[in-house]
């Protein structure tokens, strides 16, 4: 009988060791612009997508959400053409800002946030 008790103990302990892979919610957020901005970002399929978003006021915001694993690459960059404009670009992990950059009066220069998900 004790053999089986030991066996059950060992097996139950063994099975408590398994871990599920962590999935994180990633959000690219672009705002604080009031002129059109070209946004390049690495999408959920691992491809570079390009969108031109016509910001009209500083209240406008562009976001993109997807799920990713730790170690996946994130990349988003924004560029505006108007010499007096600005843009803020951020990457949020599980709704918390992980990396953020701001540009003002730097037309035709890419502002990029990139890295790997911790």
């Amino acid at each position: 009988m004790m053999k089986y008790i030991s066996c059950l103990i060992v097996i139950s302990v063994l099975f408590t060791s398994c871990e599920k892979e962590e999935i994180k919610q990633i959000t690219y957020r672009v705002n604080e612009a009031y002129t059109p901005v070209e946004i390049n970002y690495l999408d959920k399929d691992g491809e570079i997508s390009t969108v031109v978003f016509a910001f009209e006021s500083i209240e406008d915001e562009w976001t993109y959400n997807f799920e990713a694993k730790p170690g996946d690459i994130f990349y988003a960059s924004a560029m505006y053409s108007d010499s007096l404009s600005s843009v803020s670009i951020a990457v949020l992990i599980d709704d918390k800002v992980f990396r953020e950059k701001y540009s003002e009066k730097e037309p035709r220069r890419y502002t990029t946030v990139s890295g790997t998900i911790p």
């Binding site: 390049n40 570079i48 690459i73 990349y75 890419y110 990029t112 990139s114 890295g115």
Partner: peptide, 9 residues
Amino acid sequence: KNMIRQPGL
């Protein structure tokens, strides 16, 4: 090599 700082990745 992913050049993540460069435009267009």
